[in-house]
Simulated assay, not measured.
Amino acid sequence: MAVLAPSSCAVAKWKWLGFFINLATASLGDRKFPEFVRDLLHQHKVPAWKLCFEITEIDLFLLHDEVILFAKEMRDSGCKVAVSDFGGRGVSFEPLYNIRADFLKVDGSIILDILRDPADQAQVTAISRVAKTIGIKTIAEMVESDACVAKLSEISIDYAQGFGISMPAALDGLD
């Protein structure tokens, strides 16, 4: 999935960041997978920075050692790493210190109610503040409206994805 980010000029203009790839749990434990990725990047001359591998928050907790090793290998290859679905089951930042993620994707279940529920807004604000403090960019999942984009900008979320940003598009239409 591509993630779009607001430009510094206006919220209405968006730019493409790259492809975020959701990983299956089995891929995290497959010691041959990082080499497979490196070989494909080299073979097809794809810049590694255009790929970001998403690891779910639950996999980060359950497969902590495997995730740390996988994330290091992907970062060493030039790829990015994101932790997705963050905050939907509570918030714990401790595992993030070891993985050194580039992005923290805030769970869409919190984002969907951010305009109606002060507790969700406070949680997203806290996640944003802590992520910035430890040097991780934030991405809001499931952004559905311009009003949500404005609220997320107000509380310093860095990036957004969802139907309120862009509808799905064919790959051949991207640069």
Rank of each mutant, 00 (worst) to 15 (best):
V3T: 09
V3M: 06
L4H: 08
A5H: 11
A5G: 14
A5L: 10
C9K: 15
C9D: 15
V11F: 06
A12K: 11
K13W: 10
K15P: 00
W16N: 12
W16A: 08
F19I: 02
F19K: 05
F20H: 15
I21T: 05
A24E: 13
T25F: 02
T25N: 12
T25I: 06
S27G: 02
S27N: 14
D30K: 03
D30N: 14
P34N: 09
E35P: 00
E35H: 05
E35D: 09
F36P: 00
R38V: 15
L41N: 06
H42I: 10
K45S: 11
V46Y: 03
V46Q: 06
P47T: 03
A48N: 11
C52L: 01
F53T: 07
F53I: 09
E54Q: 09
T56R: 10
L60C: 14
L60R: 01
L63C: 04
H64C: 01
D65M: 08
V67A: 13
I68S: 07
I68Y: 07
R75T: 11
D76W: 09
A82H: 05
A82C: 11
S84T: 13
G88I: 10
R89T: 12
R89C: 13
V91L: 05
V91F: 01
E94I: 04
E94R: 12
P95H: 14
Y97S: 12
Y97E: 13
N98Q: 08
D102K: 04
D102H: 12
F103I: 02
F103C: 03
K105V: 02
K105R: 11
D107Y: 10
S109G: 08
I110T: 05
I111P: 06
I111L: 13
L112T: 14
L112Q: 14
I114Y: 01
L115N: 02
R116Y: 03
R116K: 05
D117Q: 14
P118V: 07
A119K: 14
D120A: 15
Q121S: 12
Q121W: 07
Q123F: 05
Q123W: 01
V124H: 04
T125V: 04
T125M: 10
A126G: 12
I127V: 15
R129E: 10
G135D: 03
G135F: 10
K137Y: 09
T138M: 01
I139G: 00
E141P: 04
M142Y: 15
M142G: 10
C148W: 00
C148G: 03
V149R: 11
V149K: 10
K151I: 05
K151F: 04
E154Q: 15
S156M: 01
A160D: 02
Q161K: 06
G162C: 05
F163K: 07
F163Y: 13
F163V: 01
G164H: 07
S166P: 00
M167P: 01
M167A: 13
A170H: 14
D172Q: 00
G173N: 14
D175L: 08
